[in-house]
Computed example of a mutant assay.
Amino acid sequence: MQEINIHTEYIKLDQLLKWANIADSGAFAKLIIQNGDVKVNGEVVLSRGKKIYKGDIIEVNGVGSFKVV
Rank of each mutant, 00 (worst) to 15 (best):
57 I>Q: 14
43 E>W: 00
64 G>H: 02
23 A>G: 05
10 Y>E: 10
18 K>L: 04
17 L>C: 03
66 F>W: 08
41 N>T: 06
37 D>W: 15
9 E>Q: 11
67 K>D: 05
7 H>L: 08
20 A>P: 02
34 Q>H: 14
65 S>A: 07
34 Q>V: 00
7 H>S: 08
51 K>S: 14
51 K>Q: 14
8 T>C: 00
35 N>E: 15
57 I>N: 10
12 K>W: 00
35 N>G: 00
7 H>D: 13
16 L>K: 03
60 V>F: 08
13 L>Q: 10
69 V>T: 13
43 E>V: 09
67 K>S: 04
41 N>P: 08
66 F>N: 01
33 I>L: 02
30 K>V: 01
4 I>G: 05
68 V>G: 01
42 G>S: 05
6 I>L: 05
49 G>K: 09
35 N>P: 00
59 E>C: 09
56 D>I: 06
53 Y>F: 15
61 N>K: 15
69 V>H: 07
55 G>N: 14
18 K>S: 10
24 D>A: 06
67 K>Q: 12
23 A>F: 07
65 S>W: 05
3 E>W: 08
10 Y>Q: 11
43 E>C: 09
39 K>Q: 13
13 L>H: 08
9 E>W: 00
48 R>G: 14
16 L>C: 11
62 G>W: 04
16 L>F: 03
15 Q>C: 09
23 A>M: 02
52 I>M: 07
37 D>P: 00
43 E>H: 14
32 I>S: 06
9 E>G: 04
39 K>N: 06
65 S>C: 08
59 E>A: 12
22 I>R: 01
29 A>W: 07
31 L>T: 14
68 V>N: 07
38 V>H: 09
20 A>D: 08
26 G>P: 12
32 I>Q: 04
66 F>Q: 03
24 D>L: 01
36 G>K: 07
49 G>W: 04
4 I>N: 05
30 K>I: 02
62 G>T: 03
68 V>R: 04
20 A>V: 02
27 A>C: 02
64 G>I: 04
52 I>K: 10
11 I>H: 13
50 K>P: 05
